[in-house]
């Protein structure tokens, strides 16, 4: 046989053999047979010197072409087989996609912390300082500097836990007002809120708790009026409860403010039409406020002829109960994880 025909036949045979190769072992055998150094094709190359010099070029090219063809076909086949093998392997790696994931959920928070954090964020963004008072207060700061002298009937509004004659558990975060004003030696303007725990001698029931959270607010400067109070609380209420909420003020009484007001917010559930949440009135009472009593300013070293201010106090549990529809304040302090699971920060 002519060498050229020999090459052609070899190539044809190789390609024919390749068709029957179906696995990695077959591929190795095939490579050894047709593409290795000792393969027939390589040995044909060895016959080069027997070829007349003028034909050598054509011969070499024919051998290389055949080799390239076989190699291409081989690579194609190899890729197909390997891909198939990979697919098989992946198939074996199948898992149950419906098993539960490895949890990486954030921890939850007592709803009161959510309310406190949110309020602090809102007021911090409005330029208020966050002041933290102490749970143990003196009678002087908790009552007397707030215009509630000893034996004042207003003391009966707040039954107090006493440690001794002068020390008590604060009944209101308003105690922080006096500290802030007295400690401000240069009598600079004040803009602060004070979140904290308060205590009153109430038996615990669905709506009363001997311990509760309050957030006090105080702004003092020249020319601070009820209009500033209304504007500040309006902004707070919209940020806390939604853009559509409105407020209204009702006259009230606190010893440390004059005038004093109760602040109602339009009911978020019915939008003010009246529903079971707002007891049909369309409004929900959320906080007490007022213009700082001149007597309080005077006792705390601010001249009431020059300075005025407003103050407000919000019950933390009340806001939490309203927002989340909590029916019993005792649930908040039970910290049952099945109850807390629904509360996390936004």
């Amino acid at each position: 046989m002519e060498p050229k025909e020999q090459i052609k036949a070899l190539e044809a045979k190789a390609l024919e053999d390749l068709k029957n190769v179906n696995d990695l072992e077959g591929l190795t055998n095939f490579r050894n047979t047709y593409l290795a150094k000792k393969s027939e094709l390589s040995s044909l190359m060895g016959k080069m010197k027997e070829i007349p010099a003028e034909e050598r070029g054509a011969f070499g090219k024919a051998v290389n072409d055949a080799r390239a063809n076989i190699e291409n076909a081989f690579n194609e086949k190899k890729e197909a087989i390997e891909h198939k093998a990979l697919e098989e392997k992946l198939k074996k790696e199948r898992i149950d996609l419906t098993l539960p994931g490895r949890t990486h959920a954030s921890g939850k928070m007592n709803p009161c912390w959510i309310i406190i954090d949110e309020m602090c964020d809102i007021f911090a963004s409005m330029g208020f300082d966050i002041v933290e008072g102490r749970d143990v207060e003196t009678d002087h700061f908790n009552f007397e500097l707030l215009n509630v002298p000893k034996d004042h009937p207003a003391r009966d509004m707040q039954d107090t836990f006493y440690i001794d004659d002068s020390l008590l558990l604060r009944t209101q975060t308003s105690a922080a007002q006096a500290h802030t004003m007295l400690e401000n030696e240069e009598k600079k303007p004040i803009k602060m809120i004070c979140p904290g725990k308060c205590f009153r001698r109430d038996d615990d029931d669905a709506t009363h708790s001997h311990q509760f959270g309050q957030i006090e607010g105080l702004v003092v400067d020249k020319g601070i009026s009820l209009a500033d109070l209304k504007g500040t609380l309006e902004l707070f209420v919209k940020k806390m409860f939604g853009e559509k909420r409105e407020i209204r003020l009702r006259s009230s009484f606190f010893p440390f403010t004059e005038p004093s007001v109760e602040v109602d917010v339009s009911c978020a559930k019915c939008g003010g039409k009246g529903c079971n949440m707002c007891k049909g009135t369309g409004w929900i009472e959320i906080l007490g406020a007022g213009e700082v009593n001149p007597e309080v300013l005077r006792m705390c070293g601010y001249d009431p002829a020059v300075y005025s201010g407003f103050a407000f106090g919000v019950g933390v549990e009340r806001l939490a109960m309203l927002r989340y529809g909590i029916d019993d304040i005792r649930r908040i302090y039970a910290n049952d994880i099945r109850f807390l699971k629904d509360f996390s920060e936004k």
Binding site: M126, G231, L249
Partner: peptide
């Protein structure tokens, strides 16, 4: 005066203070 005339007569505004501080420590 205000409790008889009603708090709706108070026009809301925001206080402007001569202090720049505020926020978290």
């Amino acid at each position: 005066v205000i409790r008889l005339l009603g708090y709706a007569n108070v026009t809301a505004k925001l206080p402007s203070l001569n202090v720049a501080q505020g926020g978290y420590s």
